[in-house]
Amino acid sequence: MASKKQREILLDPLFENNPITVQVLGICSALAVTVKLMPAVVMALSVMVVLGFSNVIISLIRNYIPMRIRIIVQLVVIASLVILVDLFLKAFAYDVSKQLSVFVGLIITNCIVMGRLEAFAMDNKPWASFLDGIGNGAGYGLILIIVAFFRELFGSGTLFNIKVIPDWFYQHGYMDNGMMLMPAMALITVGIIIWVQRSLMPGLTEKE
């Protein structure tokens, strides 16, 4: 169904051109929701939806947007989609939406969304733009979920709120690492992910 080029558009942002670790986009709104896996997964899905659909919409109307108010039009489209997502979460996933609090709203200023609109959707066809949006959203979500996995596992000893570290460990002196729950550890975890990724893909190393 999908041609080779389309598959590339979809899969490239997952690793080689990952928005967080390579493009340095969209770190802002999201690390704060990586204390537990559940909110991280919901956040990742929300970003994918917003990114995919805003890319399609902008791509559809790209030939009609007045250049002078381009940025505002993009912001309006993104903001409306985010409001829809926010309303949806409040109605059908209330508990998670409370944990995400203002961070759903901050998807608006997530640089990934604006960045992809400018760089891709403004001069590509809708279907390719959609794949690009979903791919970038997924690449971003992947990092979120990896960070959240480690933070929840070592910080609370749970995954999706289910205890995974057996009681036997605790009886023999194992303790959850409260430090993992602090914001600081999210940054350090991302740093380590970058380290691992760049060791595996030496081409990405920065020259200074």
């Binding site: 009609y64 947007i65 002078r68 108010i69 039009v73 309006v76 409306s80 409001i83 829809l84």
Partner: peptide, 22 residues
């Protein structure tokens, strides 16, 4: 696409569509 009238009409359409939708 850069005339004032066009920008103006575009804005009005955009705002009303978004407003009704939301």
């Amino acid at each position: 696409r850069n005339s004032n009238i066009y920008t103006f009409i575009f804005t009005i359409i955009l705002v009303s569509v978004v407003g009704i939708l939301l």
